[in-house]
Amino acid sequence: MKTKLLFMIAMFISHVAISQEFFLKTGRNFTNYNYKNSLGKTVSGLERSSGSNYEFGVEFFLDDAKSSLESKFSYSASLVLNQFNAKGGNVNNTYVWNTNYIGIQNMGYASVLKSPDGFYNLKVKAGFNTSTILNGQQYIDNVVYDLKKYQEFKGIFLQPEIGMDFKLELTRNLCVDLGYLFSKAFNVSNKSSEKLDFTNNQLQLGLQYTY
């Protein structure tokens, strides 16, 4: 019984090891901040701003497919770098926030429209990102503040996500990926009286290589 179980585990690991694709993606984030000061009052006048996104990871297939163009169900793990920026102000001051967050992203995929010849595959996706700030600056007129020193910006952000990917074959081992992702990020480690969360719309373009 133990021998059979070990054999099945070994077969599964070897199957997963060869059923995978590496991908590299880049795109734009369009972020809306929701910021509350120490009095619990939402800061008004904040506007959506854009920033860059970079992602490198591996997609694993949960069926007998040999590529993401063929697979119905798959899973990916990736390293992501996101810029979440915002701007705002009033008659007296102008505010700008520029931040860089690094994190680990886990995503599940399900195919909803796939060509019989494996030329394209439209997938819905859902997952979450766990990230922390690398660096950030707040500009108030001509004064610059380091955001890594503020509790509402540092610590751990948890970011549930949902979106779609459209994959299109370029060569036998290479496909292009067009993606959209909606998410909302929460600082789960902030204990201060000032609170920050933000929603983000992300557009991506990437390449996937079958290993």
Rank of each mutant, 00 (worst) to 15 (best):
E21A: 12
L168G: 14
I102K: 14
S74W: 00
G27M: 04
N34W: 06
F157T: 00
Y101C: 02
Y54R: 01
G206S: 04
V124M: 01
E152P: 03
E70H: 12
N92H: 06
F182D: 08
S183T: 03
R172M: 06
A86Y: 06
I9V: 15
Q20E: 04
N82R: 05
A17Q: 08
Y211I: 04
Q159G: 06
F128N: 01
V96C: 08
T31K: 09
A126F: 07
M11D: 12
K87N: 07
I156R: 02
G51D: 05
K36H: 15
N82P: 02
F157R: 00
N201T: 04
K87I: 04
K191A: 11
D63V: 04
V80K: 04
G51K: 05
L178P: 06
L6G: 08
V96S: 15
G206E: 02
I104Y: 13
P160E: 03
S19E: 01
V43W: 01
V58M: 08
F166M: 13
M11K: 10
M164S: 14
F61V: 09
V188I: 11
L6F: 12
G27P: 07
S76M: 13
K148R: 04
Q137L: 14
I162G: 09
L181P: 02
G206R: 02
E161D: 06
T31W: 13
